[in-house]
Amino acid sequence: MNDVQLKNPMYAELDRVIDSYRDAKGPLIQVLHRAQEIFGYLPPEVQQFVSQRMGIPPSKVYGVVTFYNFFRTVPQGKHVINVCLGTACHVKGADRVVEILREELGIGIGQTTEDRQFTLSAVRCLGACGLAPVMMIDEEVYGKLDRAKIKHVLQQYAS
């Protein structure tokens, strides 16, 4: 199974990543970070691969993947919108941001649009509280949101 998988360049890259952590202590989380960068999410096959190559029981890999908010087990839209629901954003109207996005995209938190363009999810504090309310699309943070700004930002990503 490994040989077949290794012909896939993504698995080959993950294989090299795991190799580079061979002498590191407790590298599972760091490897999963990289695996998610490569695959976009962590499906059972990838977890299985990590488990076999690192000699860690699959139950343990799955346990770690599901524990941390950062790791995903289902495919995401092309762009992931993380709306901050932390206290600072909450007071500045984060719930309205979610509502506007629901109206604009037709999806709620945890859902992906049918065209797989956007996934909407919630985070608890991005640490950009001075800009509240904020959302993060992929790696970009957008702050001081209102309806006009949200619409404008979404347009930049829609294609």
């Binding site: 407790g26 760091q30 524990f67 908010n69």
Partner: peptide
């Protein structure tokens, strides 16, 4: 440097240690 993966409880020192060891926090 060890990158965290988003778990509030990892601010607790022993949970943080577990996380550095590559386990659930």
């Amino acid at each position: 440097i060890k990158k965290g993966a988003g778990a509030y409880v990892c601010g607790e020192e022993t949970a943080l240690i577990e996380s550095i060891e590559g386990k659930r926090g």
